[in-house]
Amino acid sequence: MARTNADSLPASITRLPVIGTHMRPNIEAVLAQRPDLVLQMAGRKEASLPVEALRKHGVRVAVFHAATFAELFSVIRRVGVLTGSTAQAEAMVRGLEARLAVIDARISATTGRPKALFEVRSPNMLAAGQSGLVDEIIRRAGGVNCVADAAKFSRLSEEEVIRLAPEAYLIQRGPMNPAPLPLNERPRLRAIPAAVSGKAWFVDEQKYSRPGPRNVDAVEELAALLHPEIKSPAKGRATTKHSKNKDKQ
């Protein structure tokens, strides 16, 4: 077993050998592992090149696409089949589905669907669009993605953000957005409802933007943030003043 440079979760896999980066894996390093199976996420154009190269060398490569929870669960099941752990995979999916159902039930009891904006990167702002898991995470957590762009990412002007008037503002923090400013330190966005009400939070890029079981954690976390009345353990970090000190540590 091996991992790419960027994979660090769960912590137990950091001891595994690295085969290069996710955009340009080192084919030689992959072959040196003599793998029975290579898993590759679809999406980026660059991703298909190493797949071709590995297939040419007789390596079995399974390419997955997970832009919805349904696709994510089917991926988990198929990986289960491919790795001979069908039952474990099935159990995992069942568990995840059950947790989503709980959230669904709680959310359907609430009223109000706040307009949310998910910031992928800033400055040169990129926001999550309609296609992709983030959009579904927001929807399942009882919000509405206010970015109407059908693509996965949308490059928005600040003016457009003000026009969209998001009531909740999510800033992902991680490799894509290494050091974003909290919303209350962005003077030009001071007038948007999320800034006025203080409904702005940093969230973990690994949890929201990487397909995996942790996306369900994301739904739980976001649901608690958007609808505090459902009383579920919230792990999000607020960017408002009273919690800023804790945030910096």
Binding site: N177, A179, L181
Partner: peptide, 11 residues
Amino acid sequence: TGVGSGLAGGA
């Protein structure tokens, strides 16, 4: 190095 993001004049 990460020093460049999140530009704010005041900061």
